[in-house]
Simulated scan of single mutants.
Amino acid sequence: MKIELNGKRAIVTGSTKGIGLAIAKGLALSGADVIINGRSRESVEHASEELKKATGKAVQSFVGDLSLAQDCTKLTETFPSVDILVNNLGIFGERDFYDTGDDVWEQFFETNIMSGVRLSRNLTPSMIKKGWGRVIFISSESAFNIPSEMIHYGVTKTALLALSRGLAKRLAGTGVTVNAVLPGPTLSDGMIEQLQDDIKKNGKTLDQAARDYVMRMRPSSILQRPTTTDEVANMVVYIASQQASGTTGASIRVDGGVIDSI
């Protein structure tokens, strides 16, 4: 299977590092014209340069905090017509339920959910007119396995599944597909940073520390290691392609078998 996205314009939110950057790279390598997004000019410029070196393609960008309604509006005014929207932007962090105030809930809701709502609402009309489009929400296996140590995060990831399914039904028959991708524990920059104490204290390699972390935190993992950012990106690139035209309204797992269901 050869995926070609030549002539397609894609926006990947929160794409200056980790899964988002890997998705942007994968789309660009498949021929798409990619727009990356981050909150700081420095991070966006660094990621743009990295992508250009890796893909040989010029990259467009938007600097803005998409948890804010006004920045979502600015983005869609700057790029009013796209073919692929990857709602990757998200924040996470452990916090006990009883120490999680309304301000934290609102921050997670605005960032993890409303950014995708606003961008999808503003950008899908042009997709409908063209009769082709892809909207992809990056959820998480935590949508099913709600973490007791960060309930607020799990709730937002579950909400993305409802949003994705509902929007897919709303866009039925238009040629625009809407899907959610559910990564499991992923060896991103955040996980690598989190593992540094274990590596230093116990003399482990990064690979061993990562495997131990997965089996400690997600013992149901069949893969028994974290996925890589490229493994997640590969699925997103496929879902964004013409070859995935028969898939919509789906929750697609790249979780290493963590979710224990048939």
Rank of each mutant, 00 (worst) to 15 (best):
E141R: 13
A22T: 14
V44M: 12
L182W: 02
R218Q: 12
E94L: 13
I252G: 07
A10E: 08
S120M: 06
A24V: 04
E50N: 09
K130C: 03
K200F: 05
A58E: 14
I11T: 06
E49D: 06
E141L: 14
L68K: 15
V135P: 04
V135D: 08
D198C: 00
S48M: 13
A168L: 05
G38K: 11
T174P: 04
E106I: 13
V181T: 02
D103E: 14
G166T: 15
F92A: 12
I138N: 01
P226L: 04
M235G: 10
M127S: 07
L187P: 01
E141F: 14
V135H: 04
I199M: 15
G20P: 04
T78D: 06
A58N: 13
D99L: 11
V104M: 13
G131S: 07
S40K: 15
I192Q: 12
D71V: 01
D33I: 08
V34C: 08
V34T: 07
K74H: 13
R216W: 14
I239D: 01
G154P: 02
Y98R: 04
V232Q: 05
K17H: 13
M215C: 09
N37H: 10
S115D: 07
T228Q: 11
E110W: 00
R95F: 01
A24C: 09
N202A: 02
R9H: 11
N179Y: 08
Q70E: 15
A10Q: 09
T78N: 06
F108T: 03
M217V: 11
V135N: 04
L29C: 13
K200E: 14
G173N: 09
I11C: 08
V176T: 03
G26W: 01
L187Y: 06
K53S: 10
D230L: 11
R225Y: 07
Q243P: 00
T228N: 11
I151W: 02
I136R: 01
A233E: 07
K17Y: 13
T177R: 15
S61N: 09
L66G: 08
S40M: 06
G26C: 07
L68E: 11
D212Y: 09
S15E: 06
L163C: 07
G56T: 03
P183V: 07
S43R: 12
A47L: 09
A240D: 05
I151V: 15
D33N: 14
A22K: 08
R134T: 05
T247G: 00
F92G: 07
K53L: 14
Q60I: 00
A172G: 09
T247Y: 03
P183H: 04
G256D: 12
V181F: 06
R118T: 03
S139V: 02
V178H: 05
D99A: 05
S140Q: 00
N179V: 10
V59S: 08
E77M: 10
E106C: 03
S43V: 00
K129N: 10
S140C: 01
K157C: 04
V34Y: 14
E50A: 15
Y153S: 01
E42T: 02
T78V: 03
G256S: 06
Q107N: 11
F137T: 03
P80W: 01
S43P: 00
I128D: 08
S120K: 02
H152E: 05
I239E: 01
V63I: 13
